[in-house]
Design a protein around this nucleic acid. Structure first.
Lengths: 234, 234
DNA sequence: CCAAAAGTGTTCGAATTACACCCATGA
DNA sequence: TCATGGGTGTAATTCGAACACTTTTGG
């Protein structure tokens, strides 16, 4: 058994994660990037990454890397793409599987993040990233924009309770363009997946805006029928 | 330089390809599968696959595997997903990057295919495939259905000249459901990416049906403007 | 009382759906 | 002449896009 496939070459396999967060005050989509602590490209900005260990599934590796950096588990995380150009990493031939994740900025473990030299950067002014990491971010952004339109994943970036204005701002930050307020509210409310709470957010306005929460149970029930989430926002 | 990353474990990396073809007479979408000639699972049905060699990019590896099996190059081929469960292959820990390809059945090199024990199977009655290959096919089918709706890739499965009836039949075979003939013709013709030839296909009917060809140049020109291919067929 | 943000409906045009008959021709 | 498959148009409905004023309340 151990001789099977023995004539074939093995490769280093890494995972790299595009970790999105949303700053609710600045109304900006952010990316978690780290300063590399080792060569090659030591001191340069890169995505959160790590190597896949023996006997470790790639999904688990990606979760491990995310957890080490942020202290978080059970996070919305999907595989994005496998990058396998032979010279993509100047240090060695490394095949990298990219993942993208959506997290709530406030929930991360500040200490772990700081120790790993992780920083949030606005996607509007990203620094240059090493290797093909900028390509990865672009692909992840496309995927996010596609995904957020057809699946209720935007909520992963917001607190448990949020106002419709905050949700709208999030979509505008993701698409980088203005969205009609009335049409947006009409659409999202008609889906019957939001629950209005008896509580208002009163910091940003005197009138106050109702908090809502995502009704995951109802979404699951609805999506078993012929219901489809579709937020054509602009 | 050669010592970088030296403490990390390496892995076997394979590529597996979901190769779709379309049988214009049977009006069926087909999958190219091969009988394994080596252990484990020798003699079982599997996807076309192979290992990534040193210094070979994964895209190149996938093309190589496809070329060896079918004699074809410059084929529509996209990465699908990277499968990295640690025990997915009982022979050894192998990480597999799946690709999906669209080819014209008639264009393949019969001799090469035969030597590699490759066979076309209707997607309506696929045999059991090894490992996680059935998952790969299902994912590829979803991707194909999504893709064929928003990009003009269906033509990759048809001969250079085809009738609108054949194109409709193809879409029905992909979606496995009937599509309204008039609406389909109206929609596809309104896109202005088909060119009607002065020639008819007269085998399947006495009246004959006009041949069309995909006008790739015009499609490229149009897609640079605000034009989007969208064939909401069903 | 007023500034500032939240909340609310309607109209118009475009796109999608449903649907049934005539045409051309070779046998 | 007739059986077979190719080709055509219109009406009804739905969906998305555009658009401006009223409400609430803390300072």
């Amino acid at each position: 058994m151990i001789k099977l496939y023995s004539k074939y070459k093995k490769h280093l396999v890494a995972v790299d994660s595009i970790i999105f967060g949303y700053d609710i005050l600045e109304k900006e989509l952010k990316l978690l990037v780290v300063k590399r602590s080792f060569n090659p490209a030591k001191g340069k900005w890169s995505l959160a990454g790590g190597f896949v260990e023996s006997g470790e599934s790639i999904d688990v590796a990606a979760c491990r890397v995310l957890r080490n950096l942020t202290g978080l588990k059970n996070i919305y995380m999907k595989q994005l793409y496998c990058y396998g150009e032979s010279a993509r990493d100047p240090g060695a031939r490394v095949i990298s599987v990219a993942y993208w994740a959506l997290i709530k900025i406030k929930s991360i473990d500040q200490k772990a993040a700081h120790e790993n030299r992780a920083h949030w950067q606005s996607i509007k002014k990203l620094p240059k990233l090493i290797f093909d990491h900028t390509d990865m971010v672009e692909r992840a952004l496309e995927e996010l924009r596609l995904r957020v339109r057809i699946k209720p994943v935007g909520f992963e970036l917001l607190p448990e309770k949020f106002t419709l204005v905050q949700l709208l701002d999030l979509y505008e930050a993701i698409y980088q363009k203005p969205i009609d307020k009335r049409n947006f509210r009409k659409k999202i409310l008609s889906l019957n997946i939001l629950e209005r709470l008896d509580e208002k957010e009163k910091v940003t306005s005197k009138k106050g805006a109702f908090y809502y929460s995502f009704n995951k149970a109802n979404y699951k029930k609805l999506s078993k029928r012929d219901f489809y989430f579709n937020l054509d926002a602009g």
